[in-house]
Simulated assay, not measured.
Amino acid sequence: MTFYELIWQGEGVGDAGDLEEALLNFQEIKPKELSWEQVFADADQAPPCIRRYTSFEAFLDNEDELETIHPTQDMLERFAPDQP
């Protein structure tokens, strides 16, 4: 089963079973006072990314990821909770 590792500001901060879950989980990681536009505009911080592995075991065994996904601001905003 594929495994996704969430990377925030260069650090592994979570995991997910699929890409949609990973994008949803970033909503909880992002500071509530910041918009995605502000997150992406901060040149001092690495933008969020997702590493995809063949399995959780591959991740634990330090195998190379299959790919690194760089979600766009638009992708992440689609999963943001509705604003009042």
Rank of each mutant, 00 (worst) to 15 (best):
F40C: 03
D42M: 03
D74A: 14
D82L: 13
I50D: 06
T68N: 10
A41Q: 15
N62V: 03
A41M: 13
A80D: 14
L76M: 11
G17S: 07
A41C: 05
V39L: 08
Y4W: 13
E67W: 05
Q27M: 11
G17A: 01
I50V: 14
L6F: 08
F79M: 10
R78I: 08
P48Q: 02
T54D: 01
L66H: 02
E65C: 13
G14R: 04
F59P: 03
P48N: 02
C49K: 15
D74S: 14
Q38Y: 05
P81H: 07
Q27C: 12
Q73R: 15
D42I: 00
Q38L: 09
E21R: 03
Q45W: 12
E65G: 03
I50Q: 05
G10C: 09
I7C: 02
A16R: 07
E77L: 12
M1G: 09
Q9V: 08
Q73C: 12
L60P: 04
L34A: 02
A46Y: 14
A58Y: 01
L6T: 05
L23F: 13
G10A: 03
A43V: 14
L19C: 04
E33T: 12
I29R: 00
I29W: 08
E21C: 01
A22R: 06
A80I: 08
L6Q: 03
R78T: 14
H70T: 09
N25Y: 15
G10W: 14
E63T: 02
P81E: 10
E57A: 11
I7D: 00
N62E: 13
G17F: 06
E37A: 05
L19K: 00
Q9F: 11
C49V: 03
E65L: 02
H70L: 13
N25I: 02
F3E: 00
E33R: 06
P81Y: 08
P31Q: 05
I50H: 03
E77H: 04
E63D: 14
I29S: 00
A16V: 10
E5I: 13
A43Q: 10
E33N: 10
G10E: 11
L66M: 13
L24W: 11
G17L: 03
E33M: 08
K32N: 06
Q73K: 15
P48S: 01
K30S: 05
Q38P: 05
A16Y: 12
G14T: 09
Q9D: 08
V39S: 08
R78P: 04
G12A: 14
T72H: 11
N62H: 12
F26M: 08
E37G: 02
Q45N: 11
A46M: 12
L66R: 00
E63Q: 09
K32P: 01
F40N: 04
T54M: 00
P71L: 03
N25W: 10
R52S: 00
T68S: 12
E65F: 11
E28W: 13
F56L: 09
G10N: 04
E67V: 13
A43P: 01
A22T: 06
V13F: 05
D18S: 06
V13L: 05
Q73F: 04
D82M: 09
E67Q: 13
E21Q: 13
L23R: 04
D74M: 12
Q83W: 14
Q38G: 00
F26G: 02
R51S: 02
E21P: 01
A80W: 07
G14V: 08
A43W: 13
A80M: 10
W36Y: 09
T54L: 00
F56Y: 14
K30I: 06
R52K: 15
Q9Y: 11
Q27H: 10
G10T: 09
N62D: 14
I29F: 06
